Amino acid sequence: MYNILIVDDEIEILELIEVYLKNDGYNVLKASNGEDALKIIDNEDVQLAIFDIMMHGVDGLQLCMKVRNKYNIPIIMLSAKSQDMDKINGLSMGADDYITKPFNPMELLARVKAQIRRYFYLCGANKVEDNKDVLEVKDLTINKRNHKVYAYGEEVKLTPTEYKILVLLATERGKIFDSEEIFKSIWKEKYFDGNNTVMAHMWRLREKIEYDPKQPKIIETVWGVGYKIDE
């Protein structure tokens, strides 16, 4: 479940957005000012933030700039103004999208979905310094924080075993793993010659992540030796 932070000093707006986001399955965090929002972001695992520009104290533009200095989460700005300069200012401070009040809640929901989808395809880490939790290999993105895998921009559903095999190979790119090494690492059991377990799982894994499983480009076979993922 994704955590969405809403920051607005209008309680009615907070509650309206909260209802739509919760109905769509998101977990909602709320703040009515920039100071509280910063505390939440520092202490919670936030995947996306929605900031109102016009707030007392730390306004949305200042908040966006402060957050962007430390975090790489998507930010959507809200404003009652519709002038181009407000949009330009918001985007120049690091916002990813901008929507003008009054807005259609369904449009805001669609933009939230689009930003989260783009975020996890291309980045996936909450904090900039936490990018070690994301492995990017060719057309593959592995988010170790939430165990999500994207191939060619689409999320793929892996079994826990398939995921472990993929992470093992992707973590040590360039290293060739033979079937025995993979089996012992994943299943934690003694390996016997003729055991086709790894081969079977590898085929199913390739069916999910490779554009053409018969000519794999991500997980390569080193004939007579084993498997590897290169840079």
Results as ranks from 00 to 15, higher is better:
Val137Glu: 05
Lys138Met: 07
His56Gln: 13
Gln47Gly: 09
Met106Thr: 13
Phe51Met: 09
Phe103Trp: 11
Val46Pro: 02
Asp45Ser: 13
Met54Ala: 10
Lys87Cys: 07
Ala151Lys: 05
His56Trp: 01
Cys123Leu: 10
Cys64Pro: 04
Leu140Ala: 05
Ala37Arg: 02
Asp45Gln: 12
Glu136Asn: 14
Glu154Pro: 01
Leu135Lys: 12
Ala95Ser: 08
Ile73Ser: 01
Tyr152Gly: 03
Arg118Asn: 14
Lys66Asn: 12
Tyr121Arg: 12
Met54Asp: 08
Leu38Gly: 03
Asn131Lys: 14
Glu129Gly: 02
Ala95Thr: 06
Asn33Trp: 09
Ile41Gly: 01
Val128Tyr: 11
Lys138Ala: 07
Asp52Asn: 14
Ile73Gly: 00
Phe51Ala: 08
Val67Gly: 01
Gly34Leu: 03
Arg145Glu: 11
Leu91Ser: 05
Lys87Pro: 02
Leu63Cys: 09
Ala80Arg: 08
Gly34Ser: 07
Leu140Ser: 07
Ile73His: 01
Tyr152Leu: 01
Met65Arg: 15
Ile40Glu: 04
Asp42Thr: 05
Glu44Tyr: 13
Gly57Lys: 08
Lys144Asp: 00
Asp133Val: 00
Gly57Ile: 11
Lys70Ala: 12
Asp97Arg: 02
Glu35Gly: 05
Asp36His: 14
Met106Ile: 14
Asn143Ile: 14
Ser79Gly: 06
Tyr152Ser: 11
Val134Met: 05
Leu122Glu: 13
Glu155Pro: 10
Gly124Asp: 09
Glu155Thr: 13
Met93His: 10
Asn72Val: 07
Arg111Tyr: 09
Asn69Trp: 01
Ala114Pro: 00
Phe120Ser: 00
Gly153Ile: 11
Leu122Thr: 14
Asp86Thr: 08
Gly90Met: 03
Asn104Arg: 12
Tyr152His: 13
Lys138Gln: 13
Tyr98Met: 06
Ala37Thr: 09
Arg118Val: 06
Asp52Phe: 04
Phe51Val: 08
Tyr119Gln: 09
Ala95Met: 09
Leu108Gly: 06
Asn69Arg: 15
Gln62Leu: 02
Met93Leu: 13
Tyr150Asn: 05
Arg111Glu: 05
Lys70Pro: 01
Asn104Gly: 00
Ser92Lys: 15
Val137Phe: 12
Tyr119Cys: 01
Val58Arg: 02
Asp45Asn: 14
